[in-house]
Design a protein around this nucleic acid. Sequence first.
DNA 1: AGTGAAATGATTTGGCC
DNA 2: GGCCAAATCATTTCACT
Lengths: 158, 158
Amino acid sequence: MYLDEQDLRIIDLLQRDARATQLEMARAVKLSQPAVAERIRKLEERGVISGYSARVDAAKLGKDITAFIGVSIEHPKYFDEFLKKVLSLPDVLECHRVAGQDSYLLKVKTANTRSLDSLLVGTLRTIAGVTRTQTTIVLTSMKEDTHVHVSPEPPKGA
Amino acid sequence: MYLDEQDLRIIDLLQRDARATQLEMARAVKLSQPAVAERIRKLEERGVISGYSARVDAAKLGKDITAFIGVSIEHPKYFDEFLKKVLSLPDVLECHRVAGQDSYLLKVKTANTRSLDSLLVGTLRTIAGVTRTQTTIVLTSMKEDTHVHVSPEPPKGA
DNA sequence: AGTGAAATGATTTGGCC
DNA sequence: GGCCAAATCATTTCACT
């Protein structure tokens, strides 16, 4: 998976603004506009770029609470059933299997404390094998990106 | 902030695929293409849609580790300095102030265990006021979206 | 791979209901 | 607010290096 500096720059620009025109990007990386189009096509083909999405303000859509929920499951035999149920819940934005005390870590955005309560007690705790949930409520998000850092230089602090 | 069913549908379509054409969306919501364009313009103006980004595959960009890091800070007087430093670290994708034992919860994507070690010990633990970090390593991500659920019906499990 | 120029396709604008 | 039709702008394709 070789990516040169111009590919990285294009990826960075598209993460910031997927509406940037190929002509603008072409100027930024000093290539012609069709060359940029061709590079983007290949990045999509190779799966480096997997799609494009609108960023939305969750609060303006009535999701006022963000929380992280650690879920302990007593035995791996329950994992499949747990995943099947959890992945169908619309307020669950992320579901990671993790190392450590908990089996899974979820990120949820939900309307309010009532809907969070319902998700925790009414839904998660009723799934077979779930022995414990540990919820961390977000007070303020200083940064909440998906923007993966790409740069020819090694990342700062790493 | 009133959003009708057609607005919600457009938001959903744009979260899935920001490249969907206005004509396609117009068919889906049974409006004309300029009507869709006008609704999108207003959603952007109101900040419901805050931008558009490319989704990228972090692993293909050499970020093989995802981790969540809880950071305890001994006194709020250290918060500003902590934020200033942490928000400048490119591998930190999210930084949330949270309720509970820890003061902050970070989500990071970093190259490997070495770069994670360097971030934890070389960077975070040297920031004034940081008394503890608690790292949860992600083994597999079953879902990792930003796609906020929008629908006229109440969310399932909430 | 890259380029410039032409063709195609999408969005924006204007006039009207 | 929404619609249709025209104009503008972006992307895709083509012939060539």
